[in-house]
Design a protein around this nucleic acid. Structure first.
Length: 422
RNA sequence: CGGGGCGUAGUAUACCGGUAGUACGUCUGCUUUGGGAGCAGAUAGACCGAGUUCGAUUCUCGGCGCCCCGACCA
């Protein structure tokens, strides 16, 4: 992508109504546009990051046997009445509307009900189980107060997976496999060393649910962390009996603020019974299907990454989620030969399958570097009169707390390999 | 939902009961060219409605919108 063709523009200042660092930087760099409080549009750069994150999650969900679908945003009232979750007194985040032809619909804030209901069309025998389905879906929640930029919006993207199994044993296997899959996701997006499996309150069916909490001072949650065991406990279940069960002493725990980036639940057979999802087992008995639910807030995850991987100059994306592999910056100083050379390098990199963001704009060096710092693609390749004279390209690798000024000269013959290895 | 604050060019900000100034941006021209250049010119603005007043962007009330703290967030 040539930067001169990109319709978005960077800004020196953040809008005064944005306080959250993630929204300030994402807006300044042109990744997102705020449509209204808690509602953000994703622009070309932002969409690429979102898709990178989704692809990582998709690969890990597929590995545990997940089958991707996409449900509808509009939902039927009757379905939610079956589980007693249509009433605003029970669920206070509903957006609801009326059909012109009569009747009410809801805008999906969660999808267990519709997916489970749909599955009654397909799951009826023990031979049909287990089944795991997931989707990336725009969820709508009528929050009283949106806040924290893209991390707590009224409209956001979530990956939700649902497991349909015969019994608790079979459920446990996919539940544990999904925990591992989630940990791989957080590892791959760069948050592995600061995201912890967390014990949280369960529900009617189980003692615990599990959350994935990413340590950050801007988090809304407080958890108690056991670094050695790599687990945390949500303050809502910080009780002596729980500590005993987990074999942890209270003084081994560290109180930290964190962002809930994922959560998983065991619903048992309760919801299936309410919605009429039964299968016939080997003995010919009608049995409720065991349901599990697994969520990762995709847009929240993106916000969390920005909060953590940024400094006063801008974002520094972990390379797995950066919108492009490399930011090619030409410093032409009015020299047409440099422009020609940079164009050649751009084509060469593209032909090698590298995703290149090419700053081909006719601007001074300072402005181009400042924009590149803000946008935050970690690998930067500079082409200028100096680099041409030296017979190579200048590569800088940007990392948190390690902004680079001068880069290292890499010869053209080595550049593809160097970029792949970086 | 309780409490607090704020709405002025695209963005960020001034001033003022007598129709608004600056910076950045954008456009033109010339000079410049490895960390947000200089000069000259141009462009563009008071959230909506009612009230008070000779006159309201300014004061009052209502609406709408936005932000913060709290509550809420399987």
């Amino acid at each position: 992508m040539r930067q001169s063709q990109l319709f978005t523009r960077t800004r020196k200042e953040a809008p005064k109504d944005e306080v959250a660092k993630n929204a300030q930087l994402l807006i300044r760099a042109g990744y997102v546009h705020k449509e209204m409080a808690g509602v953000y549009a994703y622009l070309p750069l932002g969409l690429r990051v979102l898709e990178k994150i989704k692809q990582i999650v998709r690969e890990e969900m597929n590995k545990v046997g997940g089958q991707e679908i996409i449900m509808t945003a509009l939902q039927r009232k009757e379905l939610w009445e079956k589980t007693d979750r249509w009433d605003d007194r029970n669920v206070d985040v509903w957006f609801k509307s009326e059909l012109k032809s009569g009747g009410e619909v809801g805008f999906g804030w969660s999808h267990e009900e519709p997916i489970t209901d749909m599955m009654t069309n397909f799951l009826s025998s023990h031979r049909d189980l287990p089944a795991y389905v997931y989707q990336f879906q725009t969820k709508m929640r009528n929050e009283l107060r949106a806040k924290s930029g893209i991390m707590r919006g009224r409209e956001f993207v979530m990956k939700d997976m649902y497991s349909y199994t015969k019994n608790a044993d079979e459920h446990k296997k996919i539940y544990d496999a999904t925990i591992d899959a989630y940990l791989r996701v957080f590892e791959r997006v760069g948050l592995g060393d600061r995201t912890f499996l967390t014990f949280a309150s369960g529900g009617a069916f189980t003692e615990f649910s599990h959350e994935f909490q990413t340590l950050s001072d801007v988090g809304e949650d407080v958890v108690y962390l056991h670094r050695e065991k790599k687990i945390a406990i949500n303050q809502e279940v910080l009780r002596d009996d729980v500590l005993t069960k987990l074999g942890i002493a209270r003084d081994e725990l560290e109180e930290v603020k964190s962002i809930e980036t994922g959560n998983i639940f065991d619903f048992g057979g309760m919801k299936s019974e309410q919605l009429g999802l039964f299968y016939t087992n080997e003995e010919g008995e009608k049995t409720p299907v065991h349901l599990g639910s697994y969520g990762i807030g995709i847009t929240r995850l993106m916000g969390a990454i920005v909060e953590i991987f940024s400094d006063e100059k801008g974002i520094i994306w972990p390379k797995e989620v950066a919108p492009y592999n490399v930011h090619l910056v030409s410093i032409t100083s009015g020299n047409a030969d440099v422009e020609k050379e940079a164009d050649r390098v751009y084509e060469m990199l593209r032909e090698s399958g590298i995703e290149v963001f090419y700053d081909d704009r006719d601007l001074r060096a300072g402005e181009k570097f400042a924009d590149a710092d803000l946008i935050g693609i970690p690998l930067r390749l500079v082409v200028s009169e100096k680099t041409i004279a030296a017979g190579g390209f200048e590569l800088t690798i940007h990392q948190l707390a390690e902004r680079q000024g001068k880069g290292t000269l890499v010869a053209e013959s080595d550049i593809i390999e160097t970029l792949h290895d970086a």
